[in-house]
Design a protein around this nucleic acid. Structure first.
Lengths: 327, 327
DNA sequence: AACACCGTTGCAACCTGTTGCAAATCGGCT
DNA sequence: AGCCGATTTGCAACAGGTTGCAACGGTGTT
């Protein structure tokens, strides 16, 4: 059915090895045989079987892309960057949707069955040790948006979430907001914990609450709940989509943003810049971070014994319309 | 390095075939050897190499998932449904991001190199013949959100876009809106053309314009442009994210929706239901459509010579706040 | 002409698993 | 014990490639 090496070899009148070498960069082959082989391959429409090749080369160029964030719109941007970045380097993303699955064992087995060269985990809320399970199974792994202090076990690419929390607090204080509030994602999410730690360290006494998930509805519900009590003057939401939910609740309550209440988010997803949302937020440099992830996983593949490394990126405030100007 | 059949066979004191049969459902193997093999496999942490197996079985259970819609938030929902649906059936999505690549040749070659069992194309704006190129290469393919009349060449899963356009027009007319306008996606998108055809057929004389892309900004810009001229009483936007952009422009212009202008979208993406957006829109039953895609691609894999089939799903209006009530 | 050297080529083994076929084993029956 | 048929098992070939090694052919040198 399909065209194989043998067919091409037969037509070109050479051995299978010659054909193989023709498609292997750097192999020793004369210009004349190469031409004959290429002509034959062209005529037959041959393209080498990557998976058969991988048996001996032990490289599939497949990368497992593991995530459980299929409800936060920022992840569409993230998947776009990952898939394009991988493709540009000749790597292929095998997508794994964890949805509610949080036991790494099945994903590890799955990705080993498919002999992926490496794994990128893109998530900020997974049980501790999730990423390590891949490393333990001998799979090169990088954890994107993971926790910095896990980096002794697994390479991590992230921003300094504690510093980002601090930055959020300073930004709010500088604009004259006093009683501050924090709205996190699920309490277990490491990013949420770190952002809160930094925020509280800088702002002192803050009201703290957690949304059920990184979704619009969860953010809106949480803010609605908060408004029933004694509200703060400004809130740091640990994620843009939460912020947008919170803004919706504030507006429904007849409060004016940024005059009555200030809101600062985190991520700077595309939607944050939409007219009508216009969210002031802390920018994560996704493009650079994702490029770093791919470089890093490639580096681990090339040198499996390299020590886990952490790449921390700077974040900064993007001024829009949900905070009043600095005093 | 990795554990193979041979290692397990050695430890269990049986032949490689016995081990293979132990992992092949329906193969003839006695309970006692099975137990011995399973114990050995367990002890060594063996799991079979799917790719090596695929050499002889000619099935990888890999499905190419091809799309160029990484900027329309509805596609995050769609990817979620696809990945979960495929996983639930033991299939693995190999994601291909076309971004601006519109020549099928490279994608076809890529997916053939990886011996995918089948391909699902999820896009409404691709050059005609794109999907057919996969079929011509002998790859089982299904086109999700494709054009109905291409179904003679390639199986298609879609709604009846012409009927949806009609439905939009009737819905607007029934609510007393007269001079109607249509805002499409890129003019070349088949879905846009069909929706317009139905809309115009029912509404008669409509103002027609096209946004550059299926994005918020494009929708907003197009509506802003339209407002400079003689505006219509209500608009059918061929996509929710366009609608949201259009709404943003309307509000900035001080117009009241739905009193001054009505807007109806199409897709019923999650965001359409967000408070503050509250978009009246035509629902596409994504969950059912995507399940159908997967069933269909599986069917084509099982019977490659089956005639291309079209599965058309019903769509209906979801009433929210961007149209005034019916008279 | 003899020799060394280098790039090119084919052979054969190997990567990991599957499967047709024939041989071995087993249980049951006379 | 001997025979039958069904089940289980291993051998060997195969899927589509890669690669170490030895043989080969051509060139330049002495």
């Amino acid at each position: 059915m399909n065209i194989t090496l043998k067919d091409v070899a037969l037509r070109a009148g050479v051995s299978r090895s010659a054909v193989s070498r023709c498609f292997t960069p750097g192999a020793s082959i004369s210009a004349s045989t190469r031409a004959r082989v290429e002509a034959a391959a062209e005529a037959l429409g041959y393209s080498p079987n990557m998976l058969a090749r991988s048996l001996t080369t032990r490289s599939t160029r497949l990368i497992g892309l593991v995530s459980n964030n299929f409800h936060n719109p920022v992840f569409l941007q993230i998947f776009d960057l990952f898939t394009r970045g991988l493709q540009d380097r000749g790597l292929r993303p095998l997508l794994v949707n964890l949805s509610d699955e949080t036991d790494p064992a099945t994903s590890v087995q799955l990705l080993r069955q498919y002999s992926v060269d490496g794994v990128i985990i893109a998530s900020s809320h997974l049980p501790p040790g999730f990423a390590r399970a891949f490393a333990d199974a001998g799979l090169p792994v990088v954890h994107a948006f993971g926790r910095a202090d896990a980096a002794r076990e697994v390479p991590v690419v992230c921003i300094d979430n504690v510093a980002a929390g601090r930055l959020a607090a300073r930004t709010l204080l500088l604009r004259g907001y006093r009683r501050l509030g924090f709205i996190g994602g699920p309490e277990g999410a490491s990013t949420t914990q770190d952002r809160l730690a930094g925020f509280a360290a800088e702002a002192g006494d803050v009201t703290v609450s957690f949304a059920r998930a990184y979704t619009f509805e969860a953010g809106r519900r949480e803010m609605t709940r908060l408004l029933a009590g004694n509200r703060a003057e400004a809130y740091f939401c640990a994620d843009d989509v939460l912020s947008i939910g919170a803004l919706s609740a504030l507006r429904d309550a007849g409060l004016c943003v940024p005059r009555d209440v200030g809101v600062i988010g985190l991520n700077d997803m595309e939607m944050a810049g939409w007219a009508g949302i216009d969210l002031t937020t802390i920018h994560q440099p996704f493009a650079e971070m994702i490029a770093a992830c791919i470089d890093l996983v490639q580096a681990v593949i090339d040198a499996p014994d390299r020590l886990p490394e952490m790449r921390v990126f700077p974040s900064h405030v993007v001024e829009r319309g949900t905070l009043r100007p600095a005093l």
